[in-house]
Simulated assay, not measured.
Amino acid sequence: MRNLIKFISLYNYSITFFILLFVSGYFLVNENFILKTKYFNSSNYLSGTVFYYQSSFFNYFKLEERNINLERENKRLSEKIIRSYSSKTEDVDSTLNLNYDYVKAEILNNSLRKSKNYITINKGSKDGIKEGMGVISSSGIVGRVKYVSKNFATVISVLNTSFYVSSILQKSSTLSSVNWDGKDPKILKLLYVPKHIDIRRGDEIISSSFDSIFPKGISIGKIKEIREDINSNFYDIDILSTQDFFNLSSVYIVNYLLVEEKVELEKTTYEK
C-alpha cells in the first residue's frame, strides 16, 4: 500500500495529465459529429480487418471440407438440371435418369470455325471419364468424349459434320437424327422425318436414349424451317440449336451407369 501511495505521489502530475487527456478526448469525440464518425469508421475498419484475417486463417484449414461440399453441391445441381429436362417432357420417364451420373468440367479449348470441331476439357481418366461418354450443358447437348488422357479429354462437338445425335420430336415421339452441315453454327439439320408426320415451326427436338449416351429428354433445338424435297420421302428441316457454343465455359460429362450391361446384352442378342 505504501508503495502504491509512493508511486502516485511520484507520478501524480503524469497520471492527472492522462486522465484529463482521456476525459477531454471523450467529450471532444462525442460532441463533434465529424470526429465521432471518423472514430467509429476507423474502429470498424480495424476490427473488420482483424476479423477478415482471422476468418481467412481458419478458413484455410477448412478448404478440403468446403471443396468436398462444393463437389456434392455441383453433383446435386447437375442432377437437378437433368431432371428439369425430363419435367418439361410429358412422355419421359424421370426414373430413367437415376441410371446416370454426372461430372462437371471446365472448357480449356473450343474450336468453332472448322467443319470438324473439337472441345478440350479439364477432366480425364483419373476423374472417371471414358471414351464415348456424352457431354451436355445447362442449355442442351454439347457432344461426345473422343479421347481421354489422365487429366484431360477431347470432345467431338455437335458442330462436327461426322457427329450424329439420336433424337425424337417431343410432340409426336417420332424418332429422328440431328447433324450439323458445317455451315451456320446456330443451325442444325433434323434428318429422317417422314412427310406424313405433322410438324410445325417451334416444335422441340430432344434426345432419345437409344444411343446409350444421353438421357432421354435433353434439349437439342426447335424447328426453324421446314422444306419439302420432291425427290425424297423426308422433310428438309433446319432447327435452331439451344446450345450457344460461342458462350460455352463449363459442361457436364454424362456417365450411363448401365451402359456395359446394355451393350453386352445387345451384342449377345445380335450374335445369335
Rank of each mutant, 00 (worst) to 15 (best):
M1D: 02
N3T: 08
I5R: 05
I8Q: 01
S9T: 02
Y11H: 13
Y11N: 12
S14N: 09
T16H: 03
Y26N: 11
F27T: 07
L28G: 09
L28W: 14
E31R: 12
I34T: 10
L35V: 05
K36F: 13
K38N: 11
F40P: 07
N41D: 04
S43P: 03
N44Q: 03
Y45F: 02
T49H: 12
F51Q: 11
Y52N: 03
Q54Y: 15
Q54C: 04
K62L: 15
N67L: 07
N69K: 04
R72M: 04
N74P: 03
N74I: 04
R76C: 05
K80L: 15
I81M: 15
I82L: 15
S84T: 08
S87M: 11
T89S: 15
E90A: 12
E90W: 02
D91R: 14
T95K: 05
L96S: 00
L96P: 00
N99G: 04
D101W: 06
L108V: 05
N109C: 01
N109Y: 00
N110E: 07
K114W: 06
T120C: 09
I121N: 02
I121A: 12
N122V: 01
I129M: 07
I129V: 10
M133A: 09
V135F: 01
S138H: 14
G143M: 08
Y147G: 08
N151W: 00
F152H: 05
A153E: 01
T154K: 10
F163L: 09
S166G: 12
I168D: 10
I168T: 13
I168E: 15
Q170F: 03
Q170M: 09
T174A: 06
L175W: 14
S176D: 14
V178I: 13
D181I: 01
G182W: 02
K183G: 02
D184G: 05
I187G: 00
P194W: 12
I197L: 07
R200S: 14
F214G: 01
F214Q: 01
P215E: 11
G217K: 13
I218L: 11
I220H: 10
K224M: 15
E228N: 13
N233H: 10
Y235P: 04
D236M: 01
S241P: 03
S241E: 08
F245H: 12
N247C: 06
N247W: 04
S250V: 02
V251E: 07
Y252H: 09
I253T: 10
Y256V: 01
L258M: 08
K262N: 07
K262F: 13
V263C: 06
E264I: 06
E266P: 00
E271H: 06
K272I: 14
